[in-house]
Amino acid sequence: MDRYAGFLEEVADDTRQQERHYQLLSALQSLVKELPNSFQQLLSYTRLSDLALALLDGTVFKIVPGVLEIQHLIEKSLYNQRLRLQSEHRVLREALRQKHQEVQQACWPHDLPVLQVAHQQELEVLGHQIREEQWAMDWKIILELDRKVADQQSTLEKAGVAGFYVTTNPQLMLQMNLLELIRKLQQRGCQAGKASLGLGGCWQPPAAQCDQEGSPVPP
């Protein structure tokens, strides 16, 4: 009798899982229609079905907000670093121009042409230095964002999300759209309630995520 009851419970669990999978798949298919046609063609029924399976236990819905939050913090930090560098460069330029102006005002008229040439050369040297530092900063930002993207890809791959693996090729755009689908599906759960997607107690998005907008990575 106990064996029979256990069998019935297992069948009931399978049925609930199938229902949740179907509801998630249906929601994903609806969201895909909002994407450009070029990406709709890449998101086949099989790919969306695999994505729905990965979302069943709710783990991915807990991972994605953390992934996006870290991405936003890093982007903000890098942006502020670049702003500080630009501010430092403006100060350097202004200080050098002020110095040149004071020297030229105090010099003898016949020395002015020579000073102007020398000062122009100093400005060019400073300009070259600034361009080199800006290039180094931009390269640092690119490398840091690439590392963060790779971390996100690896995290979602380990979570079993189909289509995610470490890559820098055009597949990255598809991954961005998959991440956007997950985010929108989570927002839909926040707005309509998890019961409407048949997720029962498996999916409990953090309340803070219901009131803020996320973005991919692009990042």
Rank of each mutant, 00 (worst) to 15 (best):
A208S: 04
F39Q: 02
E69G: 09
E122C: 04
R147S: 01
P219W: 09
L83R: 10
V11T: 09
L83K: 07
N37E: 15
L172W: 02
G189T: 14
G66H: 13
K99W: 03
E34D: 15
L172V: 08
T15E: 08
L55R: 04
A162E: 14
A208C: 00
G6H: 13
Q209S: 12
V161I: 06
I74A: 04
E34P: 04
R97Q: 15
R16W: 01
T167G: 09
I142C: 10
R16E: 15
V217F: 03
Q86C: 07
F7Y: 13
M176Y: 02
I130D: 00
G193Q: 13
L68W: 05
L78G: 07
E213Y: 01
F164L: 06
G198R: 05
G127M: 02
C107P: 02
P36T: 02
N169W: 10
K62P: 01
N80T: 04
C107G: 02
L8W: 00
L156M: 09
Q212Y: 08
M137A: 12
E144D: 06
L145S: 04
G198N: 04
S215E: 04
V114M: 11
A162H: 10
A106R: 13
Y79R: 00
E157R: 15
C210L: 08
L199S: 13
P113T: 10
E9N: 07
L51C: 05
L51Y: 01
P205I: 06
L48F: 12
D138K: 00
E180P: 02
E69Q: 10
L48C: 04
E213G: 10
D146Y: 00
I182Y: 02
V114E: 12
L78W: 00
Q120Y: 07
W108G: 10
C210I: 06
Q17C: 06
L174V: 01
E102H: 14
K194S: 10
G198Y: 04
C107L: 09
V64W: 01
L92M: 14
L126Q: 03
L8Q: 13
Q98M: 14
A118K: 00
E102Y: 11
A192F: 03
P36S: 09
Q171E: 05
V117G: 06
